[in-house]
Design a protein around this nucleic acid. Structure first.
Lengths: 341, 341
DNA sequence: AGATTGACTGAAAGCGCTGTCAATCGGCCC
DNA sequence: GGGCCGATTGACAGCGCTTTCAGTCAATCT
């Protein structure tokens, strides 16, 4: 049983009020008394009990981070950024995934209404997900990553995917003179996929290029599925001089590897680009031309917003937009030739 | 302000004791009464306050997971496994990194002695790290991942790296007839590196192969550093028909890519193998021959051990050993030829 | 009938900490 | 000398919940 505030008080020969005061740097405590208390705290290796404190203060200094999954470089980076910033601001982070199962729903509400966390950062990547509905009933402040929840007041940080995606499309069409672009996305209901696909359609349209629905694929963001698709289509694609616009780097990697398997050279015969600029982008050969998305900044920014709101609950909701931008490497050919870094 | 147990009691026209009883399924509460209380709970959307509960019960149902870093597939998988198991057992997970900074020390002790968490899972990958010393003073149960702490009673889950590493070395020497094997590890003080290097030395010795110190490199497990090293050495290595034993998949990938850059074919002219069997292993071309390490099982197992200990604090400490095993793919040539999957 | 028992339920004591309010004390003012 | 002031400190009321410890009441026993 760890020492309580009372033990400290007794040892220092003061009342618990005084101990509490020196802990919280409240009022002024006489120098001598404070020293005495501090010594007692040292000697007893005393730490205030979080629960008692939480009960009084109604706050825990714990933040929740709820992601669709914990897998892969993408989420990994978000967690990292969020964790770092949270510690910097004196908070602890609790990470959860609202994974495929309906269990996500439960986790989310548990984490939030329990009163355990002071606030949460949620990433909602499916449009119309259950999580969104649950969020509407959440009582603590929350910030939404990469999305919005209607009719609920909250901060959010979004990526200007549109911009990056358009830049990419323009690069393909204008710099690379692409005529035939294939879009390989995640699930149809995935917000990022929706955005990126919209940019695809728009840009094609503006460039007066035809969009064939058979050139639009919806996979699940995984390397494996993309590899399988690639295995099947890569020859056909190469034959039509296609440019493959994958909605994340992993799928781009899968397709490139499928091409290699079939002895089709990238970017010689087939061009592939990715999205996110995760570390995978530099681990493929050729390295990926992709769109850089500042993942760890997203995490950090969200935490920062959340903490600000915790301090000033009345602040008007903010929406921070982070920019994405094109990163040209070799996977779709380059202006200067294939060897440019 | 969320509803309290008292609000429920009033609404159901009973005392708080009764409400508490139905919450904890204690004693027997009359059916009718219980229904009434349950209805009130529903209507008020009541959730017991974690702090109050924690204060009474001296437990939070929160587990801490402290890793050296949160970056990369390796840790990502551990987190995933741990998180899943924790939820399964009714716990929440709090993830921290004890990163390079001395801040890790602080985090660790904060997390533990604060009384916030019921127990922690720590991964200590540096021998003689500060964290280890801190652990000795930790008051809650903890389980150590991939290591041991002297003179302190605790459970642990370790990987039998030795076995996998030896299997790999034997494969190289016996099946592939390697004569010259280069070891590329992480920091000298990293436990995994130490283990793997030991296996390297032993097996070399047993096979009467000479170990040259210049064939042993200590990097930092990163793709980039390995890529740089590769750029410098790859030609020399290829010339001497070397086999590169990288201590993780990322470094193996870096070296392979450096080879490709220099137009040296893998596994034709240079042979490279990795360790861990992360998803990176199947994303390189050629795909990596590596040692499979059950990362998510590690996380899950650790959580399970921790929970068992929480239930029975007197149980004698256990050490669970997980096995690693060789996975042969193409990066060092294969028995059946280069195209085997 | 009076005593005893069993099934429920309520009152109240904290868990460890914060914050309000009052008490104490030496010094200073009129 | 009495009163007042600022500085410091202690008492104590909760925060919301669990958990004895005592009832209360109808049914059962002797």
């Amino acid at each position: 049983m760890p020492a309580s505030i009372e033990d400290v008080a007794k040892r220092a020969n003061v009342s618990i009020s005084t101990v509490s005061r020196v802990l919280n740097r409240r009022n002024i405590v006489n120098d001598k008394t404070r020293k005495r208390v501090e010594v007692a705290i040292m000697e007893l290796n005393y730490r205030p009990n979080v629960f008692a404190r939480g009960l009084m203060l109604q706050q825990s200094n714990i933040l929740g981070l709820v992601l669709p999954d914990l897998h892969g470089e993408f989420y990994s980076e978000i967690i990292r950024g969020a964790n770092l910033k949270a510690h910097e601001l004196g908070y602890q982070l609790m990470v959860s995934s609202v994974g495929g199962k309906n269990d996500g729903h439960a986790v989310l509400s548990a984490v939030s209404s329990h009163g355990l966390v002071d606030g949460i950062v949620v990433m909602v990547s499916e449009i119309d997900s259950k999580a969104k509905k649950t969020l509407a009933g959440v009582t603590v402040p929350f910030v939404v990553l990469d999305g919005q929840v209607e009719r609920v007041k909250h901060d959010s940080v979004v990526i200007d995917q549109r911009h990056g995606a358009e830049e990419m499309m323009k690069h393909l069409i204008e710099d690379r003179a692409a005529k035939h672009i294939v879009f390989v996305g995640g699930h149809k209901t995935n917000i990022d996929t929706i955005d990126r696909l919209a940019a695809y359609r728009d840009t094609m349209h503006k460039a007066s290029l035809p969009v064939h629905e058979k050139d639009i694929y919806h996979l699940d963001y995984s390397y494996e599925k993309a590899f399988d698709l690639g295995n099947e289509k890569v020859k056909e694609w190469a034959a039509s001089d296609a440019y493959i616009f994958a909605a994340n780097d992993e799928m781009a990697a899968g397709i490139i590897d499928a091409a290699i398997e079939k002895d089709i050279s990238v970017p010689g015969e087939l061009h592939v680009v990715g999205f996110d600029d995760t570390r995978i982008a530099i681990m493929t050969r050729p390295r990926l031309t992709t769109v850089h998305v500042p993942m760890s900044s997203m995490g950090a920014q969200a935490v920062e917003l959340l903490c600000q709101r915790l301090q000033d609950p009345e602040r008007t909701p903010m929406k921070v937009t982070l920019h994405s931008n094109l990163v040209v490497r070799e996977s779709c050919g380059s202006k200067e030739g294939a060897s440019v870094r």
